[in-house]
Design a protein around this nucleic acid. Structure first.
Lengths: 207, 207
DNA sequence: ACTTGATTTAACTAAATTGTTAAACTGGAA
DNA sequence: TTCCAGTTTAACAATTTAGTTAAATCAAGT
């Protein structure tokens, strides 16, 4: 019962195409026709595989959110010492976003338009998102008490880490022009940035 | 020749409504009907004042981009000493975004979908965006030579400043859930954040 | 009372878009 | 060869949306 384009090759092609189109244009501006063309098929077959635009979008969005958030939780809950943990977060985020440049603007834009989705995702993830900072906070308090880092609010630090790592991808077109870089140049800058951010944070935390 | 709703009150109401709807939903998802309702009028009157959706959007977008970028350039070119300049940037950005929370996600989303717009804006602004970092870089090199700050790439520092200040607004729904804050709580955290970021950066730059 | 410009109402056109359907085609499997 | 699931084609319905228009209404100024 194998097909001419064997097995689920087509389904995969559709999902990839949907991913690309939704991610680049957002839900509202994405057209089923765009996805069909990108996948090299026609609209009819799109509906043959996935009933509706909404259904497809939910699939893609779930996947994208997972990529965007999944790795982070594990690192946050790991047993690494604080500085290593921070380094791991930064490197993980930038590595992921170098592979998926339009991921954050897409996810964040859709979340801003439908903030309730965040709750659904949170439940799905098992742990409540407010727990994300729990361990991190405890570890920071210990270091502060030990005098190894300055008095710093963990929530504020966390926002700084995320902002430094993720924001340039969100503001990519602006950054490219201000720094006068093409895509390759931008990626190169972001690669260097892994070490840059980590050093920056460690210095900022020093007493 | 005064109208029942005197003078250009209606035009203003429409512009405000358009601003709100476009900013919250983005161009593609925004409906003329939404704008009309928000302005308390009907679609016909919308077209009576502004010919088309595109025309309205261009107006709003230009305004929004100006708010987003205009203040920054002046601060960057000012004669303030480096640390004061950094402080001014941070406070300016957070103050503006507290007044216009959905500004960055809107502008950045639309810029990502139409990066060429950035060039048009750049030309409009008079100075080329690549000049933004020129003076800042010179000042940093001087401080580095004088030994007052660590060796640091100005471009990297600039991205960090912007990221720390702007990103929480872009990721607002995520931040609110992780920090367990409502809108008021979020704003309070962002207010504190002005000082938090400035201190953080100054410590990070110390040799 | 008359005029005038803003505004509403309601209908309409035109286009785009999602989703459906039936019929034909295709290439490998039984 | 026959069968079958995947695929294409082409047409279609239903809905949404932008934009237009003509007539009626309204609120003020003259």
């Amino acid at each position: 019962m194998v097909n001419k384009k064997d097995d689920n090759q087509t389904e995969k092609a559709i999902l990839e195409a949907a991913d690309k189109v939704f991610t680049q244009k957002g839900f509202a501006a994405a057209r089923m026709e765009d996805i069909a063309q990108e996948a090299g098929i026609n609209r009819a077959l799109l509906h043959y595989y996935f009933r509706s635009k909404d259904k497809m979008f939910e699939l893609i969005f779930q996947q994208r959110v997972t990529i965007f958030f999944s790795g982070l939780g594990q690192i946050m809950q790991s047993e690494k010492p604080l500085f290593e943990k921070i380094q791991a977060i930064v490197e993980h985020e930038i590595t992921v976003l170098l592979a998926h440049p339009y991921l954050p603007i897409f996810v964040l834009q859709e979340l801003n338009q439908n903030p309730h989705r965040m709750l659904a995702i949170a439940e799905n993830a098992g742990a409540h998102p407010s727990l994300l900072l729990k361990k991190f906070s405890v570890e920071m308090r210990a270091e502060i008490k030990a005098g190894t880092i300055r008095q710093t609010d963990p929530a504020q630090l966390f926002m700084s880490i995320m902002g430094m790592a993720i924001y340039p991808f969100v503001a990519r077109p602006v950054v490219k022009i201000i720094l006068e870089k093409d895509d390759a140049g931008f990626e190169s800058v972001m690669s260097q940035r892994k070490k840059e951010i980590t050093d920056f944070i460690i210095h900022a935390l020093k007493p």
